[in-house]
Amino acid sequence: MSIQFIEVSKAFGSFQALKSLNLTIDKGEFLAILGPSGCGKTTLLRLLAGFEQPSTGEIYMNQTLVAKPGYSLPPEKRRIGMVFQAFALWPHMNVAEHVRFPIRHHKETPSHIRKNEQHRIASVLQMVGLPEHGSRMPHELSGGQKQRVAIARAIAAEPSILLMDEPLSSLDAMLRMDMRREIQSVHRQTGTAVVYVTHDQGEALAMADRIVVMKDGNIEQVGTPQDIYLRPQTEFVAKFVSKANLIRGRWHNDTFVPAGSDGTVQWSGSRVASYFKSRGLYPARPDQLLLGPPNQTSIQGKVMNVQFQGKEFIYHIRCEDGQWEICSPLHFQLNDKVSIQLAAGEQHLKYNHIGVFT
């Protein structure tokens, strides 16, 4: 199912939850809606589900109008499946009965599924890794198993689109990693389009075909995970997704001179968005910057905080431009003086032995 939002906005009284949004979701796509609390991502999902009507604009599914001001096609006629944050399992139904419910009660369930109900239940439980759990009650399941049941119920009637609202946020860290793989596997097996709402950058980057980054009811950037992470187009995306340090300085075409370097340090920035160049900023992720002993050809800094993370350390380094976050496998002590350089993969300009770029 392909979906189009055309100039869609949503207001709740004087509060504007969505502001003139345009978005296309392709058939079979895994789209993550990423943003902080209050950015409008759940409102967007509710509009897709048919729980809300837009204040302005139109929503189309497969070129059919499903929502506009004063009109909304009911959720039961949209062939959608939904997975909620809180599982929403019924305590009096066992696992198989949860999966059976949408098959029998969704008006848009395809006839071939209705006619082969038991086979479909078994197939879906196999898909989510619960083939032997059909007779179990919700109170007999772990958190991860409950979420698998919620996913199985959502896909049982073969929806055209699967809507997932922060489905992993109530699970612990290890279970979240396992469930990411399960959701990706279900997506590959079913080919159903997935719209996945999250505030977790790691989930969006790991799972999605495309990411929509939202802030204050607006879309900040849409792109592949690589585009969003490596090539942010706005300050918000750079800091929220890439955790970038926004380094002040001046630009000369594609060459950046960090503040406080007296022109002796220059970085190449051919892939940096014009947004940053116009504001005298260079977005440098913590893993783009290298630490070393003090020298005369790099930016100088001082270690203000150290966090050990196993394979690397996370440092907060104070320099003339402020405080930067930098990841490094090298071990420095609190208050050590260090040098800071751009990683070789990002740095195309090279010093020669007399400090001139070639």
Rank of each mutant, 00 (worst) to 15 (best):
S9N: 12
K10P: 05
F15R: 06
L21R: 07
L21W: 04
L23K: 05
K27M: 09
K27Q: 15
L31Q: 13
G40L: 06
L45F: 02
A49R: 01
E52F: 04
Q53E: 13
Y60F: 11
M61P: 04
G70C: 09
G70Q: 13
G70L: 10
P75V: 06
K77Q: 15
K77V: 05
R79M: 13
R79P: 12
V83L: 10
L89N: 10
A96E: 09
E97M: 11
V99F: 07
V99T: 01
R104H: 12
R104G: 08
K107N: 13
S111V: 14
S111P: 02
R114D: 07
K115N: 13
K115C: 07
V124E: 00
V124G: 04
V124T: 02
M127I: 05
E132K: 12
G134L: 03
G143V: 08
I155P: 03
A157H: 11
A157V: 03
L162E: 03
L163G: 02
M164Y: 10
D165A: 03
D172K: 04
R176E: 08
Q184D: 11
Q184N: 12
V186I: 04
Q189V: 03
T190G: 08
T190L: 09
T190F: 03
A193K: 00
V197N: 06
T198I: 04
D200K: 06
Q201S: 03
E203D: 05
E203A: 02
M207G: 06
A208F: 02
E220R: 00
P225A: 04
D227W: 08
I228K: 00
P232S: 00
T234D: 07
K239P: 09
K243F: 14
G249H: 11
W251N: 05
N253V: 04
F256Q: 02
F256P: 04
G260D: 07
D262P: 10
D262V: 00
G263T: 04
T264A: 12
V265S: 01
S268E: 05
V272M: 07
S274G: 11
S274W: 15
R279I: 12
A284N: 05
R285D: 09
D287V: 10
L291V: 01
L291S: 08
P294C: 07
S298Y: 09
I299M: 10
Q300F: 02
M304Y: 08
Q307G: 07
Q323V: 15
W324V: 10
I326R: 04
S328A: 11
Q333F: 04
Q333Y: 05
L334H: 12
N335A: 15
V338I: 07
V338E: 02
A344I: 12
G355F: 07
